[in-house]
Amino acid sequence: MLTKKLLSFFLFTIFSCQISTASADDYTDIQALVDQSTILMKSFGDDPEMTWFQHNIQYAKAVFIVPQMLKAGFFIGGSGGSGVLLSRDMKTNIWSYPVFYSMGAVSFGLQIGGEASEIVLMVMTDKGMDSMLSTSFKLGADVTVAAGPLGQGAKAATADILAFARSKGAFLGVSIEGAIVNPRDKWNAAYYKQKVSPADIIIGNTTHNPQADALRTTMAEQSKLKTTKVSY
Rank of each mutant, 00 (worst) to 15 (best):
Y97H: 15
M90G: 10
G73P: 05
A105N: 10
V106L: 12
G81R: 05
F74S: 10
F74D: 14
S79K: 03
P98Y: 02
W95F: 01
G81I: 00
A105W: 13
L86N: 13
S96K: 06
V84L: 01
G73S: 00
F75M: 15
Y101C: 05
R88T: 08
A105E: 15
S79E: 09
D89P: 13
L86H: 05
G104F: 00
G81S: 01
R88L: 12
M90C: 12
G73W: 01
G80H: 03
I76F: 05
S87W: 15
G104C: 00
M103D: 07
S96I: 09
F100P: 03
S102Q: 07
G104Y: 00
W95I: 08
G77A: 10
I76N: 11
A105L: 11
G83R: 10
G81A: 04
G81W: 03
S102R: 09
R88Q: 05
I76P: 10
G80M: 12
I94P: 15
S107Q: 04
G78A: 07
T92K: 10
V99Q: 02
F74I: 11
I94L: 09
M90L: 13
G81F: 09
I76W: 10
S79F: 05
G77F: 02
S102M: 06
S82I: 12
S87C: 14
G77T: 00
I76Y: 14
T92F: 11
G80W: 03
V106R: 04
G83P: 00
Y97S: 09
P98H: 11
V106F: 15
S96R: 07
F74K: 13
I94N: 15
N93Y: 08
M90P: 15
V106I: 07
F100Q: 06
G80L: 11
V99T: 02
S107R: 14
F75W: 14
L86C: 11
S102H: 08
R88S: 12
K91M: 15
M103N: 01
G83S: 00
G81D: 06
G73T: 08
G80Y: 12
K91D: 15
D89L: 05
G81Q: 03
T92D: 06
V99Y: 08
G83W: 03
V99H: 08
A105V: 11
T92E: 14
G104M: 00
S96M: 12
V99G: 06
G78T: 04
R88M: 12
F100A: 08
R88D: 07
S79T: 07
G83K: 03
S82M: 13
A105G: 13
V99F: 12
I94K: 13
G83I: 03
F74N: 14
W95H: 05
V84E: 02
I76G: 14
S79A: 10
S107Y: 14
A105R: 14
G81T: 00
